[in-house]
Simulated scan of single mutants.
Amino acid sequence: MAIKVLVVDDSSFFRRRVSEIINSESRLEVIDVAVNGREAVEKAKALKPDVITMDIEMPVMDGITAVREIMAASPTPILMFSSLTHDGAKATLDALDAGALDFLPKKFEDIARNREEAVSLLQQRVIQIAAKRAFMRRPALRSAPTPSSIIRPLASRAAATSAHSSTSAPSRPMAMKFRASGKRYQLTAIGTSTGGPVALQKILTQLPANYPHPIVLVQHMPATFTAAFASRLNTLCKIQVKEAEDGDVLRAGVAYLAPGGQQMMIDGRPGAARIRIIDGGDRMNYKPCVDVTFGSAAKVYGDKVLSMVLTGMGADGREGARMLKSAGATIWAQDEESCVVYGMPQAVAKAGISTEDLPLDRIAERMLVEVGLA
């Protein structure tokens, strides 16, 4: 059965363009269109689409308000379309905060080298976020305990699954109490993509101002978005968050967000390390790239890195995480159930690189235990 899509935009040209792209993929079907946010809310209730594509600026009701109302009444995976401007970035981040799962720029040429690549990217994003529909429609999703509240080392998953199948499951699983490994760290490194803005906000807002070492963040995001995102996080967090600049000295309690369109590397030695910002590179698929930052962290900090790979499409971070693991560093992965897209974390988990699967709502807690703050 095809994935049902509701296309929402006040531009007849853009509605037609998006509809043609979606309908050209056999697994997708546009079941209707809406010309403003109010109409989108009504059609979301009536038609129950699997995915909604949503414009931000519309008459009658804007896209952000529509997202809030849809998520309150009939939660549905929503893909936002945004302009690549500073104001567009702020509005898109507001939409993600309201419950949208992902975004793409309205000018497809800004995200792809040619039309075929842009068409494929839009189709794949819709297919990927459609997979979250059943999860989003569960009753009392945010408060109900789930099996992901139990964190197990990756090596014990198969045994746990076997045991689970042969015995009756507990009615209310107990959350595991974390224990620190005893390792000493000098850097935290986090890589993410689709679903990352919300995931990073959830984690970083739980960290105290006295977090004991620097944090480097790599989020796949356009160049015009990273400054706005860093600024937003900085207003919400107790730690300082900034868009990384070339020459920044890494300081404890500060998170450095890799600038979009470029690569962020670490240079120097522990205690006197600096950020290097270099050209994104024509051959690189991701700008910024998690592999690049993780790889440089492995060379400078060795086993003194606490790293994690969060929700995202693709496998960026796997090779950088492999380098960190070879140096003795710690690598965790976000668990499948709490990911918007279980691509990047799955890549490191399947390769046997990560040592723990963690649900998003417990990652900050786990970090604080590991670094001795809880």
Rank of each mutant, 00 (worst) to 15 (best):
D10N: 04
D10R: 00
D10S: 02
D10P: 01
S11Q: 03
S11T: 06
S11M: 03
F13N: 08
F13Y: 09
F13W: 02
F13V: 10
F14Y: 10
F14L: 12
R15C: 00
R15S: 00
R16A: 13
R16N: 13
R17L: 14
R17G: 12
R17M: 15
R17H: 15
V18H: 01
V18Y: 07
V18R: 02
S19Q: 06
S19R: 00
S19K: 04
S19G: 11
E20H: 11
E20G: 11
I21S: 08
I22G: 00
N23K: 03
N23Q: 06
N23M: 04
N23P: 03
S24N: 09
S24W: 03
S24H: 07
E25D: 14
S26C: 07
S26E: 13
S26Y: 11
S26N: 13
L28F: 04
L28N: 04
L28S: 04
E29N: 10
E29F: 03
E29D: 12
E29L: 11
E29W: 02
V30E: 12
I31Q: 04
I31Y: 05
I31W: 04
D32E: 14
D32W: 00
V33I: 15
V33W: 14
V33P: 14
V33T: 15
A34E: 02
A34I: 09
A34S: 11
A34P: 06
A34V: 09
A34H: 09
V35W: 06
N36K: 12
N36A: 13
N36S: 13
N36W: 09
G37W: 07
G37T: 01
R38A: 15
E39S: 13
E39A: 15
E39T: 14
E39C: 14
E39V: 14
E39Q: 15
E39I: 15
V41K: 00
V41R: 04
V41P: 00
V41G: 01
E42D: 13
E42R: 10
E42V: 01
K43A: 01
K43L: 06
K43N: 04
A44H: 03
A44M: 02
A44N: 07
A44G: 09
K45C: 11
K45T: 09
K45P: 07
A46C: 08
A46S: 12
A46P: 02
L47T: 03
K48Y: 06
K48F: 08
P49I: 08
P49H: 04
D50W: 00
D50Y: 03
D50G: 03
V51G: 01
V51M: 02
V51T: 05
